[in-house]
Nucleic acid binder design. Structure first.
Lengths: 135, 135
DNA sequence: TTGCCTGCAAATAATTTGCAGGTGA
DNA sequence: TCACCTGCAAATTATTTGCAGGCAA
């Protein structure tokens, strides 16, 4: 779907800045901080990025998450695919995990609407480095 | 185990402030922000709470997490029990979930060392309120 | 004694907000 | 036109840090 249509459907005005943010998120399809988006965008103030990201989050167009020890928020297009990440403790890179091990979580006296799962560990590169150190 | 011993084992000096923080965490056994700890503590500056929490985290004595949209860190005694939370989107309360639905997560080309799971939804109270609104 | 701790105040860093002017529908 | 957007700068909030004095081992 195109950026314009998504914005319009959500009842948001199609401004140059909003379309720009949407296109950046669509092209990258990975979690980005406001700062990240700002760097990729042209002629847009950082506070506008924050305001747009927040608005998109309110409308459910993007997700807003924190990751590991990071003190920043990460925004990501919430497309249809249910997605979790494997986060490398060595380099911090995040790789999406296809399978969701939590298919039907249920908790007593609690209406479950969603969940978030992060898997920590080491990617192949960092694991190799770790093994070399041990030797 | 007593606070003194845990600190000593980690090679940390047993100061009044550290013991105080440890005892607060042991008595509550729930995720707390630095601010939360500060309020319960007596005669201790907020920056000391931050420094102690960080040190305990480095030593693996506490866990450090962010939750949902919150822009604060939550510290919690990392006792033996593997714990996840169900977080209420209505009131923000967190209730521990006994069972871990992720028993053996495995990801291709990734060495998994741990994971974090948060379940979102509504607690009984908030669910009732929501139902009343619908009527 | 001595190096690790703490308090205080000032510094950072991420995010939010007030206000005046701009622009899409 | 007019309500909603944006840019800029200043405000807020959580957290960190420099420095001088204090205390556990």
């Amino acid at each position: 779907m195109e950026a314009n249509k998504i914005l319009a459907d959500a009842g948001l005005k199609c401004t140059r800045q909003r379309i720009n943010v949407m296109e950046i998120l669509m092209s990258v399809s990975a979690p980005m901080t406001a700062e990240n988006i700002y760097e990729k965008a042209e002629g847009m103030s950082l506070s506008t990025v924050y305001r747009i990201a927040e608005k998109l989050y309110e409308k459910g167009i993007v997700t807003k998450n924190t990751i590991q020890d990071s003190d920043k928020f990460y925004y990501e297009l919430s497309d249809d695919s249910h997605r979790h990440y494997a986060i490398c403790l060595g380099c911090g890179r995040m790789q999406p995990v296809r399978v969701c091990p939590v298919t039907a979580a249920s908790v007593d006296g609690f209406t479950v609407t969603g969940h978030k799962l992060e898997i920590y560990g080491y990617c192949r590169d960092c694991e190799n480095k770790r093994e070399q150190k041990t030797k």
